[in-house]
């Protein structure tokens, strides 16, 4: 069979392909024996199930089964991991989490940290997504111009996306520490040094900033693809009519970019609600609980505290799931409305 060897078009991954080929040959021959038997038993079309089996098993075990078990945890108490050993509590865990005298003041809640985390997350989501999408749009508009070395500039803005959250947090921790380069610059300008990560407001600011720095390139790339998909003749027509530039932007660019914008917004929202890794390493949720967000609350309640309260953690994650579900539904509705015109 001629098709078998590595693909005809030059692929940058060819150097990976070659050494893998021996391994692939071995896999082919060993797996073929049971697969031929399965094909005889099931017939040509039903063998699709065999192809699907590994994936379905993994999704079943690690996604769908846990969803069910999550309800078991959320309705039981105690510190045992095995659901059978846990006393049934009904909706108690939810009541404990939602028990507040005044919902606007976390201090009056039984689980004050949960509500602190909820409000922190809400504030974070609004600020981070708002500023990030704005800057991503500006950057995409700039990269969409005919600039010298566009590929290079695109990489510059994209590069942080590839870094690991731990690395990102450490890079900024190093810059923001008391004797770091930022304070050196401040002192050089005649100002006083600031303990960036020890003041609640500044820590929150930097958490938002670092997240924007980290993820903006990804959304810039998607917006840039959206901008490049707008046909140029629309602009030419507008120019012939002598349309004012601002009007061109608000009446042509923005509406035509809207589907991409909505995808970007919702993706960014879903990620921001789940922000954890880089913040955990950068501030550990501190100072105090100033930068503690909802996923960290779940992690600490379930895994990192002395008494592992799986029930409360599971209940909190179900509440988070509701928020994420609503966001996803909004996305589906928005995209459908876009498609219907």
């Amino acid at each position: 069979m001629a098709v078998m060897s590595s693909p005809e078009r030059p692929s940058p991954l060819r150097f990976l392909w070659k050494p893998l080929e021996a391994l692939m040959q071995a896999v082919l021959n060993t797996v073929e024996i049971p697969m031929r038997w399965a094909q005889r038993m099931l017939g040509q079309q039903k063998i699709a199930w065999v192809f699907l089996l590994p994936n379905l098993l993994i999704f079943g075990l690690f996604t769908y089964l846990p969803i069910g078990v999550n309800f078991l945890y959320a309705t039981t108490g105690g510190t045992n991991l095995w659901p059978g050993d846990r006393p049934f509590l009904g909706m108690d865990n939810f009541e404990v989490l939602l028990d507040c005298e005044n919902y606007l003041d976390p201090a009056t809640c039984r689980r004050d940290l949960f509500w602190v985390a909820v409000y922190n997350s809400a504030q974070f989501v609004v600020l981070q997504v708002g500023f990030m999408v704005t800057f991503a749009l500006i950057t995409a508009l700039i990269l969409n111009r005919k600039i010298i070395g566009r590929g290079f500039w695109r990489s510059v803005f994209f590069y942080p996306v590839l870094l690991s959250p731990v690395v990102v947090a450490l890079i900024w921790k190093w810059i923001l520490q008391r004797e770091g380069v930022l304070n050196a610059a401040l002192v050089g300008l005649g100002a006083d040094p600031v303990n960036w990560l020890l003041s609640p407001d500044w820590a929150f600011f930097w958490v938002v900033f670092v997240n924007i720095w980290f993820q903006m390139g990804f959304y810039t790339l998607i917006l840039l693809a959206g901008l490049q998909a707008i046909p140029p003749d629309v602009y030419e027509a507008a120019e012939m009519d002598g349309t004012k530039p601002v009007r061109v932007f608000t009446r042509i660019t923005l509406p035509l970019l809207m589907p991409t914008m909505i995808v970007v917004l919702v993706l960014a929202l879903i990620r921001a609600v789940q922000a954890f890794d880089e913040i955990f390493v950068l501030t550990g949720g501190g100072p105090g609980s100033a930068t503690m967000f909802i996923v960290q609350y779940i992690y600490e309640t379930g895994f990192a505290s002395q008494i592992q309260q799986f029930g409360i953690a599971a209940a909190a994650s179900l509440l988070l799931a509701v928020v994420l579900f609503i966001l996803t539904m909004l996305q589906l509705r928005a995209t459908r409305r876009q498609m219907n015109g």
Partner: peptide, 27 residues
């Protein structure tokens, strides 16, 4: 059931790992 399976797989996009941490840990 091809369509059902396809939806079954794609729907997991809506279930981020962060919300099934505890039970996945159990598994």
């Amino acid at each position: 059931g091809r369509m059902t399976i396809f939806i079954f797989i794609i729907a997991t996009l809506m279930i981020p790992p962060t919300i099934v941490l505890v039970p996945t840990f159990l598994v």
